[in-house]
Design a protein around this nucleic acid. Structure first.
Length: 519
RNA sequence: GCCCCCAUCGUCUAGAGGCCCAGGACAUUGGAUUCUCAGUCCAAAGACAGGGGUUCAAAUCCCCUUGGGGGUACCA
């Protein structure tokens, strides 16, 4: 039997990182088995602007390279893939259940149900719906329907039985049906409820494996009842742990975003977000924050890194393999190696994966990744001139490992601003130029050396400075720190000679002059 | 309240009765390299929630306690 899995997002306008992990596991299981991965849109709730709200979700899939065999844009033999367009199927299933007596119309007004529930709560017992409408005769029911009396439709649960599944990750899980209220499967307005629509669709789409977060485990009891009532075979269930917020075992949620900003792990992400988004005139927001996939794309993370991190959230291959490509994970992914406990999102580890995968990108690829950022920040002309492209190439190779995210290129504004606009880091300026007595005289002297230099590449500059330092009988540290701050404005960066060569003679001289005058 | 799930270093995890006085990775700390930063290399510190069983033997099986989480909707 062909393995068919699905991911069924609601069009919310963003793609949650935890949802992405669930989607990934579904995709992996389908691909691992040479099966199909289906995208179904659960849009029973919101009908306006589904397309706009869906776009960020599909973008996230495309960015990570997770394709779908059936669903929006690609169609498929089991369509439509939007629940809002599947009314006919739900209607048919409803009729089937009603006619076979496995579902019934409940005419009790909501207030009455509410009172029942409150009473149960006060008596500290489990609430079970009271089946008053079941006492109505067929004639009475027919009369109430003819009258247009509002009602919902409930599944009639057999209270003398147990419901059980053998979950691939949880094992055998059992519920006593005597404790389960008859679930409403159809609202007063005729629209289907989640548990019902899901079962109808999962059956119609011939889903073989339902892989979803464990928050749905309890729903499964009702869904199993529904599968059976409809006469469908049960799919295999795999309830994977949800992705927890760092340092907690609570579900990662965009509602708690404020709290996360003080978390030491997330702090780095927020800091990077700040540094990279602000030159782009963007800011951390409801749609753009560490809980959303879009955030990582916008900062210039690599899909490989995000995929690698997501794969390891609740799944492992063995006791040592950490760095894995999507292809590798696909080959080795099995459900029985999914962990049971909640997995906290580990931002540090994501960063480590990012460094690893970025390290495997060539300079050309890194340049290609950085260029869009520089363009968007307005630091390059559009179209990009050839000399600019060449310059960015030299900068990127000088940056080496320091460039962890493509967006990090925006932290090196000193190479793109005019010389008289370059800001000096005040603390560094004090420490390296203003305070040391010999800094300014040495800078002056070295400036003359530079001005006379015939070649301006890093190796010659390196050799020349070493010779000069030796002839003067001073320490390298006495000049080089002052020189760095003078020319780049910052206390840290690529090798000094790379920086000088990158800037070129004219700009170096101009900046040294400016630094001396600023003392 | 009721139902269900979960529990190994700070974090992600390995461990399916002896290979474990518990292994790896990230983070942390110390050292080396260096003009700074980043990186790299070496090293250190760091966990089986508690209590009972079962067994010659338990991180691994059973029970209880504690703790954490999820669900309890005419949400998904």
């Amino acid at each position: 039997m062909t393995v068919r899995t699905r991911f069924a997002p609601s069009p919310t306008g963003y793609m949650h990182i935890g949802g992405m992990r669930t989607a990934l596991f579904n995709w992996l299981w389908a691909r691992h088995n040479g099966g199909q991965f289906i995208l179904r849109i659960d849009d029973t709730d919101q009908q306006r602007n589904v397309e706009a709200a869906l776009a960020p979700i599909l973008d996230a899939f495309r960015w990570l390279g997770l394709d779908w065999d059936e669903g929006p844009e690609v169609g498929g033999p089991h369509g439509p893939y939007f629940q809002s367009q599947r009314g006919a199927q739900y209607g048919a299933a409803l009729r089937q259940l009603l006619e076979s007596g496995q579902a019934y119309r409940d005419f009790d007004p909501p207030e009455l149900i509410q009172a029942d529930r409150q009473a149960a709560e006060q008596e500290k017992r489990n609430y079970l719906n009271i089946r008053r409408s079941l006492d109505l005769s067929a004639d009475e029911v027919a009369r109430l329907i003819a009258e247009g009396r509002p009602h919902v439709i409930r599944l009639l649960v057999d209270r003398d039985r147990k419901v059980a599944i053998d979950d691939v990750v949880r094992g055998h899980v059992e519920w006593d049906a005597a404790l389960i209220s008859d679930p409403v499967i159809c609202r007063q307005d005729g629209s289907p409820l989640y548990n019902f629509a899901t079962v109808v669709d999962d059956a119609a789409l011939e889903i073989t494996h339902v892989i979803r977060a464990e928050e749905h485990l309890t729903n499964t009891a009702v869904q199993v009842l529904l599968f059976e009532a409809l006469g469908h075979a049960l799919p295999t269930f795999a309830h994977i742990p949800f992705v927890a917020a760092p340092g907690t075992s609570k579900k990662l949620s965009k509602r708690d975003l404020k709290k996360y900003s003080t978390n030491p792990q997330f702090k780095k992400l927020f800091e990077a977000g700040e540094a990279i988004l602000s030159p782009l005139d963007l800011a951390i927001s409801d749609e753009m924050n560490p809980v959303m996939v879009a955030f990582y794309r916008e900062l210039g993370f690599l899909p490989e890194a995000v995929l690698n991190a997501l794969s390891r959230l609740g799944w492992s291959l063995d006791d040592k393999t950490e760095q894995m490509s999507l292809e590798f994970v696909t080959e080795h992914f099995t459900l029985d190696r999914v962990v049971k406990g909640a997995a906290g999102f580990d931002a540090d580890k994501l960063l480590a994966f990012q460094e690893h995968w970025m390290g495997r990108r060539s300079t050309e690829e890194r340049v290609a990744g950085c260029l869009p950022y520089l363009l968007r920040a307005g630091w390059l002309s559009d179209p990009i001139r050839e000399d600019q492209r060449e310059f960015v190439g030299r900068l990127v190779s000088a940056l080496g490992d320091r460039l962890k995210l493509f967006g990090d290129i925006l932290r090196y504004d000193e190479y793109f601003v005019d010389d008289d606009q370059m800001p000096f880091d005040e603390k560094a300026f004090d420490k390296r130029i203003r305070k040391p007595e010999d800094a300014v005289p040495l800078l002056r002297e070295y400036r003359a050396q530079l001005a006379a230099a015939e070649t301006f590449d890093a190796p010659s500059l390196d050799a020349a400075l070493h010779a000069w330092v030796e002839s003067k009988g001073i320490q390298m540290g006495q000049i080089i720190h002052a020189l760095r701050v003078a020319t780049t404005g910052k206390p840290a960066g690529p090798g000094m000679f790379d920086c000088l060569a990158l800037l070129g003679k004219e700009r170096c001289l101009a900046r040294i002059d400016r630094a001396i005058n600023a003392v």
